[in-house]
């Protein structure tokens, strides 16, 4: 079953760039990444899915139901964590969490306690006394306390220290193993890489590619980095398949796609100090789409 399905979803936002003909399909149980630079349309897409804003044309379905028509109904099973969290300042954390829980038909007390424990949150504090990172934790707990079937995260990790980030990601993986679908939007590629099965790349309001994470990693690009004892001739690398060549003093980096033997022969002719040949990370692939 498709949990999220958009059909030529378009939103023009006046002067700001919107999204154009976005077709996005997220299957049940997927950990789906949504990457692109700031302003590419990630938030616009997510805000349309949550019917905070309405599409100019096209449509979107969540759990097979139209997001505009059945917005309130489908939100029963959606957990949302926005990039910036703001809550009613004159409330205590536990008041806010209880308020949040009161919107759902089920009893959320047990799960709320578990999450508060995992996130190490002091519920007796007032929200305006919390640091940015702690506010974020409140956001995580309130987004997950009703055990949603779909979790939507918009740039979720800002403000969380690495340890908390790890805990949070483990939490998400655990939810996912229970069958929960997750849509994670980010411009930080590392976090998408760590979590997601599939990834959609969005650029200037359009989806430019959708790939399996494993396929992306398996692309036959290799990243070379080497240092030599003696200066290197640039012409040495004037070869088909070499891209993104950067030379600095005696060190060279580039991406290579093609017959690995041909490049190894060239590299072998150099008096090497060090050599790295790596699988490209998402960042490199990403750059490739944004050339």
């Amino acid at each position: 079953m498709n949990v999220i399905e958009t059909n030529k979803l378009t939103k023009s936002c006046g002067t700001a760039r919107g999204i154009i003909d976005v077709d996005l399909v997220v299957e049940e149980g997927e950990l789906y990444g949504f990457i692109g630079p700031n302003g590419a349309g990630k938030s616009t897409t997510i805000r349309t899915l949550l019917s905070l804003i309405y599409p100019t044309s096209g449509s979107a379905k969540i759990f097979g139901k139209d997001v505009v028509e059945f917005g309130a109904e489908i939100k029963e099973d959606i957990g949302y964590l926005p990039s910036e969290v703001f809550y009613y300042d004159n409330m205590k954390v536990k008041d806010l969490l209880n308020y949040s829980a009161s919107f759902y038909k089920k009893d959320c007390t047990k799960r709320m306690r578990e999450l508060v424990e995992i996130m190490d949150l002091d519920t007796h504090k007032r929200i305006d006394d919390l640091s940015y990172g702690n506010k974020k934790k409140v956001g995580i707990v309130q987004g997950l306390l009703h055990e949603p079937k779909l979790i939507i995260l918009d740039e979720p990790t800002g403000g969380l220290d690495p340890l908390m980030q790890q805990k949070f990601f483990n939490l998400l993986k655990e939810e996912n193993s229970k069958g929960v679908t997750i849509l994670l939007s980010s411009h930080i590629l590392g976090e998408v890489q760590r979590l997601c099965d599939r990834v959609a790349i969005i650029k200037e309001g359009r989806i430019v590619n959708v790939e399996k994470m494993s396929d992306l990693a398996k692309s036959n690009y290799s990243r070379f980095k080497l240092e030599s004892r003696t200066p290197i001739e640039k012409s040495l690398f004037a070869l088909d398949g070499v891209s993104g060549l950067k030379m600095e003093n005696n060190s060279v980096t580039f991406m290579f796609k093609g017959d690995i033997n041909s490049i190894i022969k060239i590299v072998a002719s150099i008096d090497l100090l060090t050599l790295w040949v790596e699988e490209p990370d998402l960042e490199d692939i990403f750059l490739h789409y944004y050339e």
Binding site: E73, Y87, S100
Partner: peptide, 17 residues
């Protein structure tokens, strides 16, 4: 103004409610 709209409007309630 207080940027809490995203909290309230992503809850399972209709805007009219």
């Amino acid at each position: 103004r207080g940027k809490t709209a995203e909290f309230l409007l992503t809850k399972p309630v209709r805007r009219s409610q």
